[in-house]
C-alpha cells in the first residue's frame, strides 16, 4: 500500500532545504506511520535528488511528522535548473513510499 492511502503531505522550501510534513487522515494510522517512516526510509526514497541529510521532527498532538532535507533543491529555487526548484512536488514522492498494509 502507498502512504498516500492513509496520509497527506506538503513541502516547503527555504534556500536549499526542503521540509515535508506528513499527516495521517485517521489518528489510528499515526503509530504505524511513525514506525514506518524513518529518516533512513525517506533518505532512500529521495536518492539522488538530495546530497544532504534527513532529520525527522514530530508534532505529537496534530499528529504529524516533519522531515527536513538539506541540500535537497539543486541549490534553492532562485539558482536551481530543476523543473520544480521549490520542491513542491516532493510531497507526492513522499506519499509514494510503500507502507505495509
Amino acid at each position: 500500500m502507498k502512504l498516500r492511502e492513509i496520509a497527506y503531505a506538503r513541502e516547503g522550501d527555504k534556500a536549499d532545504i526542503a521540509n515535508i510534513a506528513v499527516l495521517p487522515y485517521e489518528d489510528a494510522d499515526w503509530p504505524r506511520i511513525r514506525e514506518a517512516l524513518t529518516e533512513d526510509v525517506v533518505r532512500r526514497k529521495f536518492g539522488d535528488l538530495m546530497t544532504g541529510t534527513v532529520t525527522r521532527y514530530e508534532y505529537p498532538n496534530l499528529p504529524a511528522l516533519n522531515f527536513v532535507l538539506t541540500e535537497a533543491l539543486g541549490g534553492g529555487v532562485s539558482l536551481s535548473l530543476r523543473v520544480d526548484g521549490h520542491g513542491k512536488s516532493y510531497a507526492s514522492l513522499m506519499l509514494d513510499i510503500d507502507i505495509d498494509g
Binding site: 506538503r10 516547503g12 522550501d13 527555504k14 532545504i17 521540509n19 510534513a21 499527516l23 532529520t55 521532527y57 514530530e58 508534532y59 496534530l62 504529524a64 516533519n66 527536513v68
Partner: peptide, 8 residues
C-alpha cells in the same frame, strides 16, 4: 502550520 517550519 507545518509549512516551511524545520524544528517545530
Amino acid at each position: 502550520l507545518t509549512y516551511e517550519v524545520h524544528d517545530p
